[in-house]
Amino acid sequence: MTLVPVSLVDVASYLPGEPVPTEYFTRFARSERMAKNVMFRAPKGRHHIGREQTAVDMVERAVQPLVRRHGAQLLSRVDVLLTHTQLPDNPVLGAGPEIARRLGIRPTHVYDVHNGGCAAFVHLMALASMILRTTSARTALIAVTQNCAGTVFTQTDIRNLAQAPVPGDGCGVGLLVKGEGAPILDTECRTYPEFAGDMGFSTHGTRKYWEPGEGQVCVSFTESKITKVFARGNRLVPEVALAVCERIGVKGRDIDTLVTNQPNRLFLRNWHDALELPAERHPDTFDTCGNLFAAGIPVTLDTENRAGRLRNGSVVLLAAFAHAGDFAGAAAVRWGAAA
């Protein structure tokens, strides 16, 4: 059966505030042993969301370049709105309806998708493609927001931890349409539920995060789990990437550009080595943005696109894994996005 073509016709992004230097964190005591772990080697810079800034604010800012390039009528054509927010501003309500209100749109389909983690942009691409192919909808806006660096990782009890300097905040959005232009050639999404319990989110005590009391909430790993996560990440991203390559009839080494999530320098090196790609075909925004989690792929895509380094007609492969390895995804696009 021939699938209805769906295209990723544009991407845009937003980074909040001025760059935050690593010196912000080195003022506070850090565990040197943990800081030397490859998972926690700090980038040179990152951005932090402001205390009064929300995920919806970031999406609104990220969408503006799309409006400038495609015209004000773009938003009236959005039938599908899919969002992923790392740290929901309101844990009861999703961001989707508030984003729709802020943008002045009334999509037929609005979904807030909380799983997918660092691979959420690929996950939303796959979901948006499915909706566009199986309904009358023609235009989808997908938005992923990482907003816990300036909130969680600057807390007084957290900012001295080895992992605190690694995350950065940012937002990326993608515009998908039914039809040719910049076709999504294939997607692969895999869930690994056996790894879902290996990343914690706790107050480092008995208090639940919503209960009053002492103890600041943070994502946490034990050292033994860090080793396992590193091994999984090295394996999962090449697996899903090469699965997509095989189906579209392209060798990994022949991909024009590989764009992944940006967790640390060693993952980046290992991933392009596994695909037999030179480093220059695997863009790296880690040192300027830190680990942007779900926003890493669209921010890097937008950076490369605005710099003119993504050639129209080239094959761009997106790949990432999430959390402690409970999800991984990849997508291939015949590039043709606006810039």
Score class of each variant (00 low, 15 high):
residue 293 F to M: 10
residue 81 L to T: 13
residue 218 C to L: 03
residue 147 N to Y: 10
residue 47 H to P: 01
residue 260 T to K: 03
residue 214 E to R: 13
residue 303 T to P: 03
residue 49 I to H: 11
residue 48 H to S: 07
residue 292 L to W: 03
residue 5 P to H: 09
residue 305 N to I: 03
residue 38 V to K: 13
residue 279 A to Q: 13
residue 124 L to P: 00
residue 154 T to K: 00
residue 135 T to P: 08
residue 90 N to K: 11
residue 78 V to W: 11
residue 206 T to F: 08
residue 76 S to G: 14
residue 182 A to Y: 02
residue 183 P to M: 10
residue 61 R to M: 09
residue 68 R to W: 04
residue 133 R to T: 14
residue 239 E to I: 05
residue 123 H to V: 14
residue 133 R to C: 14
residue 100 A to W: 10
residue 298 P to Q: 02
residue 27 R to D: 06
residue 328 A to Y: 02
residue 48 H to D: 08
residue 198 D to I: 00
residue 58 M to C: 09
residue 164 A to N: 00
residue 337 A to Y: 07
residue 99 I to W: 07
residue 53 Q to W: 05
residue 163 Q to Y: 01
residue 133 R to E: 15
residue 197 G to L: 09
residue 70 H to E: 06
residue 107 P to S: 14
residue 327 F to T: 06
residue 21 P to F: 06
residue 270 N to H: 15
residue 89 D to T: 11
residue 325 G to L: 02
residue 171 C to M: 05
residue 110 V to S: 08
residue 255 I to F: 02
residue 140 A to F: 09
residue 260 T to E: 07
residue 240 V to W: 05
residue 116 G to Y: 01
residue 83 T to L: 11
residue 252 G to P: 00
residue 240 V to L: 04
residue 310 L to K: 01
residue 299 V to S: 07
residue 95 A to D: 15
residue 36 K to S: 14
residue 37 N to P: 02
residue 99 I to L: 06
residue 139 T to Q: 07
residue 219 V to L: 09
residue 337 A to I: 05
residue 124 L to K: 02
residue 16 P to F: 12
residue 117 G to W: 01
residue 195 F to Y: 14
residue 246 E to W: 06
residue 45 G to Q: 15
residue 76 S to K: 14
residue 291 N to G: 05
residue 18 E to F: 07
residue 311 R to Q: 10
residue 336 G to L: 06
residue 214 E to S: 15
residue 142 I to S: 00
residue 201 F to R: 08
residue 283 P to C: 06
residue 284 D to F: 15
residue 60 E to G: 09
residue 48 H to Q: 13
residue 235 R to T: 06
residue 314 S to L: 06
residue 264 N to Y: 14
residue 250 V to L: 04
residue 330 A to W: 13
residue 278 P to M: 11
residue 49 I to E: 10
residue 90 N to R: 12
residue 277 L to G: 06
residue 31 S to P: 00
residue 154 T to P: 01
residue 107 P to E: 08
residue 116 G to F: 04
residue 3 L to D: 14
residue 188 E to R: 11
residue 179 G to Y: 12
residue 47 H to Y: 15
residue 123 H to Y: 14
residue 335 W to T: 02
residue 244 V to W: 12
residue 298 P to A: 01
residue 68 R to K: 13
residue 48 H to P: 00
residue 7 S to L: 04
residue 192 Y to V: 05
residue 254 D to H: 11
residue 155 Q to Y: 05
residue 161 L to M: 04
residue 311 R to F: 08
residue 118 C to G: 03
residue 333 V to K: 03
residue 69 R to Y: 01
residue 17 G to S: 07
residue 19 P to N: 09
residue 114 H to D: 14
residue 307 A to E: 12
residue 295 A to V: 10
residue 180 E to V: 14
residue 175 L to N: 06
residue 232 R to Y: 00
